Computed example of a mutant assay.
Amino acid sequence: MTSDPCYLFTYGTLMRGFSNPFAEKLHALSSYEGKGYFNGLLYRITWYPGAIYEEKSDSKVYGEIYRLTPGTELIKDLDEYEDVFEDEAASLYVRRVVPVTTESKSVIPCWVYLYNQPVKDCALLSDGLFRG
C-alpha cells in the first residue's frame, strides 16, 4: 500500500447526509466513489463514532469512499476537524492507511481516521453503521 493514497474512507459525520462545514468541504473537493468497508469495530463515542481497525476481525465498519482532488488543503483541514495532533497520544483520532473493500469487492488503500482513545465505556455499534 502507498503511504499517500488518493482516497479517503469516511464512516461518520463526514458522510453524505451529515450537515457540517467539513463534510461540505470534503464533498466539494473530492468525488464520491461508492460505499465500502474495512475490518474492525465501530463505537458510538458521543454524537460521533470512532472506529478501530482490526485486520483479522469478522466485524466490519461501513462507510463511503472519496477520491481526493490533488493539490488541496483538504487533508490538513480534516486533520483539524478530527483533532489529529503532532503528539499522537493527545490526538482524538489518528489518520492511517487502511485496506478498504469496495462494492465491487476490490481492495484499495484509503486514508481513515481511526479513534485513538479508550473505548471501554462506549457503546459498540455491532452492525458497523453510524446513523447519527
Results as ranks from 00 to 15, higher is better:
Asp79Lys: 10
Tyr113Glu: 05
Val119Tyr: 12
Ser59Trp: 10
Tyr37Met: 05
Gly12Trp: 04
Tyr62Glu: 03
Tyr48Asp: 10
Cys110His: 02
Ala123Arg: 14
Leu125Cys: 05
Val61His: 00
Val112Asp: 00
Val94Ser: 03
Glu33His: 06
Pro109Glu: 03
Leu42Gly: 02
Lys105Gln: 08
Arg96His: 06
Pro49Glu: 04
Lys105Asp: 13
Phe85Asp: 02
Thr101Met: 06
Glu86Tyr: 15
Gln117Ala: 07
Tyr53Glu: 09
Thr2Leu: 06
Ser59Ala: 08
Gly17Met: 12
Leu129Lys: 15
Leu74Ser: 11
Glu103Gln: 13
Leu129Pro: 01
Gly17Pro: 02
Tyr11Arg: 09
Phe85Cys: 01
Ile108His: 09
Leu42Pro: 11
Phe22His: 07
Asp121Gln: 07
Leu8Lys: 12
Ser31Val: 15
Arg44Tyr: 01
Glu103Trp: 14
Pro109Cys: 05
Glu86Ala: 12
Tyr115Val: 08
Val61Cys: 01
Gly50Trp: 01
Lys56Ser: 10
Lys25Asp: 11
Thr72Met: 02
Arg16Phe: 03
Phe9Val: 03
Thr46Phe: 13
Lys56Met: 05
Leu8Ala: 02
Ser91Arg: 12
Gly17Tyr: 04
Gly71Met: 13
Ile52Asp: 03
Cys6Leu: 13
Asp77Pro: 00
Gly128Gln: 02
Ser59Val: 08
Ala28Cys: 03
Tyr81Thr: 04
Ala89Gln: 14
Gly17Glu: 09
Ala28Leu: 10
Asn20Asp: 09
